[in-house]
Design a protein around this nucleic acid. Structure first.
Lengths: 129, 129
DNA sequence: GCTTGACCTGGAGCGCGCTCCAAGGAGTTC
DNA sequence: GAACTCCTTGGAGCGCGCTCCAGGTCAAGC
């Protein structure tokens, strides 16, 4: 059996993470299974591992705390029958992300207003110069 | 001279911060001036202080690091003449926020796709039950 | 066969942004 | 004037999410 899958450095490059982060996620229970090892104990990331980790990065990049990602991974690892719980986690997260997006956009509006004030001010200075 | 302005607890409640955070911001150089004191050394937050801190919370809530807020505060404190530097900071921040908004929205789209898959799955289960 | 370099582990360290605490002072209420 | 509450300061502590390091193993290339 040939060792299939990517070594950790390639997986990290593919996913835009560091090797340290990949090992940390695995140790912290965020993955669906221990990543398979080649002879010698080196990790080999298969397609299924990469796809799961990509989802993890999406959850993390939208602000889901690591402990919630772990809860979700625990459910998926437990197998069929808890789909409504998984759905609840994702839906709650979606609501939270939408809330934050709206908040950030509102604050950004106020900041852009301030930017416009400075632009006006600088244009006026320009004219008198 | 009557002590004008809000005591720290009221200012915190008004701004949605804690008293600890207000003292921390002041000590860390994020404010435009030392907050005025009543007799006895208690802080009194005037309108001008509250308005500035509100801007600080907008910058923070949109992800600006404290050190950048301090740089901006330093410029404002220095007075007229550096408006283009202030503008540059705000515009750079605006670009960064827009970048992050787009990224979060893209990730959210993928998460919502997954939510829909679970919804379909659960509806199918429902039907067979 | 030996060097090189990627990988392994367990655990310490770190940057950020607060958050909490101890010890003490001052002003208001009875 | 005693009790209560809110405030003061300096500094320690903390939760999060990595990030780094030491010391060791293993496999591939020359």
């Amino acid at each position: 059996m040939p060792s299939t899958g990517l070594p950790i450095a390639d997986a990290a490059a593919t996913l835009g993470l560091t090797t340290d982060t990949l090992r940390y996620y695995e140790k912290d229970g965020l993955l669906l299974r221990p990543v398979p090892r080649a002879a010698g104990g080196h990790r080999r990331y298969d397609e299924i591992d990469l796809r799961w980790i990509e989802l993890v990065t999406r959850l993390r990049a939208t602000g889901m705390p690591i402990r919630d990602v772990r809860r979700y991974a625990d459910l998926v690892r437990a197998g069929d029958g808890n789909e409504s719980e998984r759905l609840a986690i994702l839906q709650a997260h979606r609501e939270e992300v939408l809330r934050q997006l709206a908040e950030v956009q509102a604050h950004l509006g106020a900041i852009e207003y301030k930017i416009d004030l400075y632009l006006d001010k600088l244009v006026a200075l320009e004219r008198t110069a």
